[in-house]
Amino acid sequence: MKIRKPSKEPPVHPKDSLLRVERIPHIWCPGCGIGTVFGAVMGAIQKSGCDLDRLAMVSGIGCTGRMAGYIRLDSFHTTHGRAIPFATGLKLARPETKVLVVSGDGDLLAIGGNHFIHAARRNIDLTVICVNNLNYGMTGGQQAPSTPFGARTPTSVAGSPEEPFNFCHLAAACGAVYVARWTALHIRLLTNAITEAMQKRGFSFLEVLTPCPSSFGRRNKMGSALDTLKFYHDRSVIRNGIDPRDALLDYDNQIVVGRFVDIERPTFTDNYEAVNLRHAMPSPEPERPQGRRKP
């Protein structure tokens, strides 16, 4: 009988090939959903089998922004709210590269809100993943554009007096070609959605609801991260293909998740090339004589 000696090598996780293992364990709190979403992103990259040299990840500031520092790809951690402008430049300079943008709700849609709507309008070929934890987690849990009405944060101690954004409706209204919303627990559907979004030409947007046990969950008495995950599990209803206007995040009744938009539209690069080609073609009108006419 052959006796297998215990290996001296540390165990290797299947996602370690895409992970900067020397930086693990990461900074995210115990139970934070960003790690799960990060795992789904890596799973989708492995599943799609795309060339890793032609793939880049750009992130903004915040907890989710750290994702770019943990992935073993060409990645860049930009300034606050400017992940999409950087990604736009990258995509236009290297059109063959697939560009993933990962960022939190505050970074992407509050500080970077203007960049977001214009990138969607231009239909720049990016895959934007918004990790929505309903507050500014890293800076101490302040109110964000996603904070539900009446939720307590350090900047809204009596409850948020504002109505939150419906990010999916915003993205669809601005012209995104792929819009979906999932929670951190819909991990298989989320992985499939990221794969689909990466293969889609144009501005694809994914919103992922994640627990934030240290900031939002603690102040709103949502219990542990596991309780928040169970809350999402019990309340979420899958409605594929509905108008994102009706895909409400009503935390008292139901959280509508699913794939809402999947359409085709020429991207910015297509339009840019078409316009330049038209410009470069000789005009059909007869050429006007050059120079001054003799009197």
């Binding site: 996780h13 364990p25 995210w28 959903g33 795992g39």
Partner: peptide, 10 residues
């Protein structure tokens, strides 16, 4: 393996 946020189980 898919759900673990720490890549600690497979």
């Amino acid at each position: 393996e898919a759900l673990c946020p720490e890549f600690a189980i497979y």
